[in-house]
Amino acid sequence: MGGLLKSSVAKKFAMALSGLFLVLFLLQHFTINFISVISPDVFNEISHFMGTNFLVQAILQPILIFGVIFHFIMGFVLEIQNRNARSIGYANYKGSANSSWMSRNMIFSGAVILAFLGLHFYDFWFPEIMHKYIESHPEDPTRYYEETIAKFENPIRVGVYVISFVFLMLHLLHGFASSFQSVGFNNKYSKGLQGFTKAFAILIPLGFIFIAVYHYINHL
């Protein structure tokens, strides 16, 4: 069992599972944020529930943070292993002839996303912790919408968000589909699933870009 857990196959399987978990979170996160475009009141209600529910805060949130850290650590580990394997076994290896730009640069797009997550935590998670646990403000279920759109008043920050979501798109275009391959999903539905993963990889990041640009333009 120890040998299995140390194998590249096991690491790819574990990374694929963590990636699929993060995709589910991404969809949930997009759905809630898109509601801010439709109805500020509903957005406040959902955000207040998510921010005060014990299950979300004490169980799901730590699991999510662990999933993010685990996914990126496994990505770096596998990238190092792949680079070492290529340098030893393929003296004349030409990546562009055997794989797409997205697959060859997953570590780069992943690093950009990780940096963006740091900014996102700085923008939203840290202020939330300060508001609730350090400054001990009274609970205000109507504050979430205004606090969210205030982050998109700065055009530079909006530009950073847009660029980050473009890299998220590139990361998902290869990573989402390959996750299913890594967990052994290979049957008559594979072609349709591949089309779905590509559509998801394009539409969800574009949706996030739309939200950021919408709030920026709407409050000029």
Rank of each mutant, 00 (worst) to 15 (best):
G2I: 09
G3V: 06
L4R: 12
L4A: 09
L4D: 12
K6H: 05
S7H: 08
S7C: 02
V9W: 02
V9E: 11
K11V: 03
A16C: 07
L17N: 05
S18Y: 10
G19P: 03
F21K: 01
F21C: 07
L24S: 12
T31Y: 03
F34K: 13
F34I: 03
I35Q: 13
I35E: 03
S36R: 02
V37Y: 04
S39Y: 04
P40F: 05
D41H: 12
S47A: 07
F49G: 07
M50V: 12
M50L: 14
G51N: 02
G51S: 13
T52S: 13
N53W: 00
L55C: 06
L60D: 03
I63S: 12
L64S: 06
L64D: 03
F66R: 09
F66L: 15
G67Y: 02
V68M: 11
V68C: 01
I69L: 14
I69V: 15
I69F: 07
H71D: 05
I73A: 10
M74D: 04
F76S: 11
F76R: 10
E79M: 09
Q81T: 08
N82G: 13
R83W: 01
A85T: 11
A85H: 11
A85I: 09
R86D: 11
S87R: 14
S87D: 06
A97H: 12
S100I: 08
N105I: 07
N105D: 05
G110Y: 00
G110S: 04
A111I: 05
F121S: 11
F124R: 01
W125R: 12
W125I: 14
F126S: 11
P127T: 12
E128Q: 09
I129C: 06
M130N: 15
Y133V: 05
Y133S: 07
S136Q: 14
H137I: 02
P138K: 14
D140M: 12
Y144K: 05
E146F: 07
I149V: 14
A150H: 03
K151N: 09
K151E: 03
E153L: 09
I163T: 10
I163W: 04
F167D: 06
H171G: 06
F176K: 13
F176N: 14
A177N: 15
S178V: 10
Q181I: 11
S182H: 06
S182P: 09
V183H: 04
G184P: 15
K191H: 07
G192M: 05
G192R: 11
G192I: 10
L193R: 14
F200I: 11
F200E: 14
F200D: 11
I202L: 04
I204V: 15
I204W: 00
P205I: 01
L206I: 12
G207C: 00
F208S: 01
F208H: 02
I209C: 02
Y214V: 04
Y216P: 13
I217Y: 08
N218Q: 13
H219W: 05
